[in-house]
Design a protein around this nucleic acid. Structure first.
Length: 428
RNA sequence: GACCCCGUCGUCUAGCGGCUAAGGACAUUGGGUUUUCAUCCCAAAAACCGCGGGUCCAAAUCCCGCCGGGGUCACCA
């Protein structure tokens, strides 16, 4: 039997980090077993449904490279993949349950009759879980507006779409007995269940918008790389058998197993992602990185200039959005903070003024405007005048870039060009 | 409140009865390389394995209780 799994987000307007986290595990399990991974849109909440919201979800999956085999934007043997287009199905099955006396009408809705007994399952991650049925009240399966409730629609769809493994987050554990009861009533084969740990806020509550960046679009805007985000998510609740921390998606697919998924819920903390993202940035070729940087570059920066800056900033940024502040001095006139200049260069005003004048004089004579050449000229000048090289360079750095922290000075000057460099040195 | 799940360094985790006076990663601190910052390298500090009982020659690892945290209890998903 071929393995079929699914991810079933609601179109709420954003692609939620939790959805992607769950999707990642489903994806890995499907790919590892040559199974199928299905995307189904659960839009049975008429009030909250926003049509554009679906596109946001497709975009997120595409950006991350989590490709699915069947979904609303692809055809498939079990379409449609949008619950709002499957209403007739739910209604028919709900009425069938009524005829079988397994459900009953209640103020226009159809309510499932929970039988006595006990309901449990062998969870692939948690082991045996069971509930006493008397803990569960009769629940609505079909609302009075003809729409199914979540618990009913999921079961009908998972059954009809021949889902073999339901891999979802822990917050669904207590929904599972209700769903199991429906499978039994429908005489449908029961899939295997695996409940992943829930991602948490620093205060240990379930991850939420207010306390964590939860929209995939945000990560993209911040300049996190899809591979880094995915790698980071793998590390939450799962560990590599050889303790590796940095590995690509196909490595996860290869080594994934439910046995290595932890049962305790991890706190979501961006700190490690920032580091990991830096690692992935450094793994890119200069050319690839230049392309990625384009949307993040300061205005007026040419593509060529972006490419030239890459070797200078590659080891200095963790996110693509760090880029602009690092190189904007190349295309923007800096404002010089005199106090900063004196403090950081640890020299007095007179010395700095003298250094500027002499630097202009020496640099004006340079024909071959290359980093090595510029450095030699400046080092010679420092030796000749007995300047402390570090202090002298810091003074130049601040006068020319406006900042105390920049990419390597002489390589920066080489990119800035002779004219601008001299102009900034002379500017009062 | 009821039911269910969970509990190892600040954070992510390894560990599945002895190899562990608990290992790795991030973050932190110190040092090295260095024109700043960063990268890179080295080192340090950091969990009495929630607490209390058992079982066992031996427990972070098995059992029980307690405490703590979380999730679910909708004609939301």
């Amino acid at each position: 039997m071929t393995i079929r799994v699914r991810i079933a987000p609601s179109p709420t307007g954003l692609a939620h980090l939790g959805t992607i986290y769950t999707a990642l595990f489903n994806y890995a399990f499907a790919r590892q077993n040559q199974g199928q991974f299905i995307l189904r849109i659960e839009d049975t909440d008429v009030k909250r449904h926003v049509p554009e919201a679906e596109q946001v979800i497709y975009d997120a999956f595409a950006w991350l490279g989590l490709d699915y085999d069947e979904g609303p934007d692809k055809s498939g043997p079990f379409q449609p993949y949008r619950q709002s287009e499957r209403l007739k199905l739910y209604q028919d099955y709900a009425h069938q349950l009524v005829h079988q006396k397994l459900a009953y009408e209640d103020e226009g809705a159809i309510r499932f009759r929970v039988p006595a007994g006990q309901t449990g399952w062998q969870d692939l991650i948690r082991g045996e879980v069971k509930f006493a049925n008397d803990q569960i009240k009769d629940f609505v399966v079909l609302k009075s507006d003809g729409y199914p409730t979540y618990n009913f629609a999921v079961v009908v769809d998972d059954w009809l779409m021949q889902i073999t493994h339901v891999v979802r987050a822990e917050d669904h554990v207590s929904n599972t007995p209700r769903q199991l009861l429906i499978y039994q009533a429908l005489q449908a084969p029961v899939p295997q269940f695996a409940h992943l740990p829930l991602l948490r806020n620093p205060d240990h509550s379930k991850i939420s918008k207010r306390k964590n960046p939860v929209a995939i679009a945000w990560y993209r805007q911040q300049g996190y790389l899809p591979d880094a985000l995915l790698n980071f998510l793998c590390l939450l609740g799962w560990s590599h058998p050889q303790s590796q921390e940095v590995f690509p998606l196909d490595e996860f697919v290869k080594h994934f197993s439910f046995a290595r998924v932890s049962t305790s819920a991890p706190v979501f903390d961006l700190t490690k992602l920032d580091w990991l993202n830096g690692v992935y940035i450094r793994q890119k070729t200069d050319r690839e990185l230049a392309q990625l940087l384009k949307p993040f570059a300061p205005p007026k920066m040419s593509e060529t200039l972006i490419e030239q800056t890459v070797p200078l900033i590659k080891e200095r940024i963790n996110k693509l959005s760090d880029y602009a502040a690092m190189v904007d001095f190349l295309v923007k006139e800096p404002k010089i903070d005199q106090a900063l200049l004196l403090k950081k260069s640890r020299q007095d005003e007179k010395t700095v003024a003298e250094q500027r004048a002499l630097a202009v004089e020496k640099l004006a004579a340079v024909e071959d405007w290359q980093a090595e050449k510029l450095e030699r000229v400046c080092r010679d000048l420092a030796a000749e005048k007995n300047y402390h090289a570090g202090k002298f360079f810091m003074a130049l750095r601040i006068v020319i870039t406006g900042k105390a922290v920049t990419p390597p000075l002489f390589a920066s000057l080489a990119l800035l060009g002779k004219t601008k460099t001299l102009a900034r040195l002379q500017k009062k």
